[in-house]
């Protein structure tokens, strides 16, 4: 994985520290062209991996990338699935069974419902595989070496104790897409322990890691201890705390931690992208973490 991954929250009105900023971003990135322009600015700063949710609009971005193969020769996308709000809104409106009917491709589920309960109960993992395939369709022909499960699902399954499903995601992504599985979580220490129990070794885990301990469940000290003592390929996100932490201190903190393979961040303007990239290089050089 690259040292720096470019994220997509800013494109889809997600800002964890300001609802107001998030709405302003929705207006700025109304056109797909604005997204492409920002991706290109990030590429100029050396950021060649785009880590993005499987939002409908990403399909358009993928079309553009496919139609410009020379320009995006070494470009990689790390898909993060699913775009949770799509399903969450559907569950409120249609219920869980209704949502599956709506989103599982083909008439597979229709026949399952006719087939009755016993048959149904054995096929959760097939349903999951079909949903993964549906989400992955838009990335056809694009390099996707790591495929992530979004935190709301990772953490839902973690809390429910359905670790076998996490394992099934991991195995399927590897088998079908020849990719590594990644897990986004807000509960990194707990998740790592559970993944170890089902023998997923050295997992890719993307979690909030920041100076102020924001969204670090169990506390910053626990995260630091896990990073120092355990085996994982950590990606730090929410490093800037949604813009609430001063960038220099924010980046310095993360660059000085051990075991952080990559740093994920998103920004809208050239100045902000360049600033964060420069800080990461600067503090990496100081701490001996020389990487690109």
């Amino acid at each position: 994985m690259d040292r720096i991954l470019f994220g997509d929250n800013q494109f889809f009105a997600v800002n964890h520290a300001s609802d107001e900023k998030s709405r302003a971003q929705a207006i700025k990135f109304k056109d797909d062209k604005a997204i492409i322009t920002t991706l290109d600015i990030a590429r100029e700063e050396g950021l060649n991996t785009f880590m993005c949710t499987t939002h409908d609009r990403i399909a358009n971005i993928c079309d553009f990338i496919r139609s410009n193969p020379e320009k995006y020769k070494d470009y990689k996308i790390f898909p993060c699935m699913p775009y949770a709000h799509k399903y969450a809104n559907a569950v409120t409106e249609l219920g869980i069974a209704g949502t599956l009917k709506e989103y599982v491709p083909g008439n597979f589920l229709g026949s399952l419902f006719k087939g009755g309960v016993a048959y149904l109960s054995k096929d959760y993992l097939s349903i999951m595989e079909l949903l993964i395939d549906a989400e992955m369709k838009m990335f056809k022909g694009i390099e996707t070496p790591v495929i992530f499960l979004q935190n709301v699902l990772t953490d839902l399954l973690l809390g429910l104790g359905m670790i076998d499903v996490l394992k099934a995601f991991h195995d399927y992504v590897e088998k079908k897409y020849n990719a590594e599985a990644g897990f986004i979580t807000m509960n990194m220490p707990m998740l790592l322990q559970k993944l170890e129990e089902v023998e997923i070794e050295n997992p890719i885990i993307c979690s909030s890691i920041n100076l102020v301990g924001f969204r670090m469940s169990g506390g910053k000290e626990l995260y630091e201890k896990v990073l120092k003592t355990k085996k994982l390929r950590a990606i730090a996100m929410q490093v800037l705390g949604g813009g609430a932490i001063r960038p220099k201190e924010a980046v310095e903190y993360v660059c000085n931690l051990p075991n952080i393979e990559s740093i994920l961040f998103g920004a809208s303007s050239k100045a902000n992208i360049a600033q964060t990239v420069n800080y990461i290089h600067e503090f990496d050089n100081n701490s001996g973490n020389k990487k690109i």
Binding site: D155, N187, F214
Partner: peptide
């Protein structure tokens, strides 16, 4: 910002408030 006031939780799912 909420980063200053968020109530620390031991398990996070979809907002500190739910936990």
């Amino acid at each position: 910002y909420i980063t200053e006031f968020a109530i620390p939780v031991d398990f996070y799912l979809r907002g500190e408030e739910y936990s």
